[in-house]
């Protein structure tokens, strides 16, 4: 009797185990260990080398080490698109350019906070191969593409034009998403463009364009991509945010300390070859500390352009940037 009962028990356990395995295989995400981690819906920009830290953190398992469940919530063609997803409440955290963050936050379309920085610099003004011209003035009367109005690149272009004493109307600024920008260079549809890496390196590598100005030359150490979080998510899950920031900082450190391996990972992340990645990596500064003073320049610009209504740009930036979650040094 005892043996029979034991056998029955064993069979029962085996069946249960089998069922559990099936459940795990069939429904990943449902069969995770008890007390499942809060999933983080994370947004990134497509093929944006600035956001390499996300890929490194994911591939090196930094998110998992922190006990996080970070899921890719979308890869976008330009910052405003990603900010629209934040406005719709579809993303919890993400990497995106400062300018769209400022634009959407000041319009109260998206309630977000900047909790860390991804990089500074890392964009370039390109001029179509075969065109004469060494400075911005040679763009007079020509067509220049930006990835979107109110993007970091749009801002850089306007800054560069201003430095060259050109006004917005001296050139023809159009919006083209970066992949189409390269095609537009080949068919001579545009004369210039401002893109994030690796697009400038890709264009140079394919002899489609050459770099006229790096963004370092336009505005040294200009803030670029930021790690942001939806305010509602932040108030509910401050510890999750702290851990994501920690993983992000760790990944950024890794990139800065292991340039070779990071370049190799950039190759995987952007799908570009080694030459392109190596050259692109040189133009990007990976730095997790946001600088509110520099960020304020975007707000000031958007205010003078009449696009956003902000009474005090300093207060606005103080409220927007929250460095509290960065690891103490």
């Amino acid at each position: 009797m005892m043996r029979l009962a034991n056998r029955g028990l064993c069979t029962g356990i085996i069946v249960l185990l089998l069922l559990a395995t099936v459940a795990l295989v069939v429904m990943p995400g449902c069969g995770e260990p008890e007390k499942a981690a809060v999933p983080v819906r994370f947004g990134i920009l497509r093929n944006d080398l600035h956001q390499l830290a996300y890929y490194v953190a994911r591939e090196k398992g930094y998110f998992t080490e922190e006990g996080l469940d970070v899921r890719e919530g979308g890869a976008f063609n330009a910052g405003p698109e990603e900010m629209s997803a934040f406005a719709a409440g579809e993303l919890d955290m993400g990497l995106v350019g400062t300018s769209p963050v400022v634009t959407f936050a000041s319009q109260k379309m998206a309630d977000v906070k900047i909790v860390a920085q991804a990089n500074t610099e890392g964009s370039a003004v390109l001029i179509r191969a075969g065109l004469e011209g060494e400075d911005m003035a040679s763009f007079r009367g020509r067509t220049i593409a930006v990835p979107g109005f109110s993007t970091v690149q749009d801002f850089l272009l306007r800054l560069a034009l201003k430095k060259a004493e050109l006004s917005d109307t001296d050139v023809n600024i159009i919006v083209l998403k970066p992949p189409e920008t390269l095609a537009a260079f080949s068919s001579s549809q545009i004369d210039g463009a401002v893109c994030w890496e690796p697009y400038p390196s890709m264009a140079v590598n394919d002899n489609k364009a050459r770099v006229m100005l790096t963004s370092h030359q336009i505005w040294p150490d200009h803030p670029c991509c930021m790690l942001i979080v939806a305010s509602e998510f932040l108030s509910k899950n401050p510890e999750v945010v702290r851990k994501v920031v920690a993983a992000h900082v760790k990944a950024t450190d890794f990139i800065n300390k292991n340039k070779l391996e990071a370049t190799d990972m950039a190759r995987m992340f952007t799908g570009q070859d080694k030459n392109v990645c190596a050259s692109a990596m040189k133009n990007v500064k990976f730095d997790p500390d946001p600088d509110p003073v520099e960020i304020q320049k975007y707000v000031d610009y958007l205010k003078t352009a009449g696009v956003v209504k902000v009474t005090d740009t300093g207060d606005f930036v103080d409220d927007l940037v929250d460095s509290e979650y960065l690891p103490r040094k």
């Binding site: 629209s84 593409a145 023809n172 919006v175």
Partner: peptide, 23 residues
């Protein structure tokens, strides 16, 4: 969305408004 050289167009303007978060 194919891009407009002139900077004019209602569809283009809507995309611009989106970029500026002017819903």
């Amino acid at each position: 969305m194919t891009g407009v050289k002139s900077g004019y167009g209602l569809g283009y303007m809507i995309l611009t408004a989106r970029d500026y978060a002017r819903y």
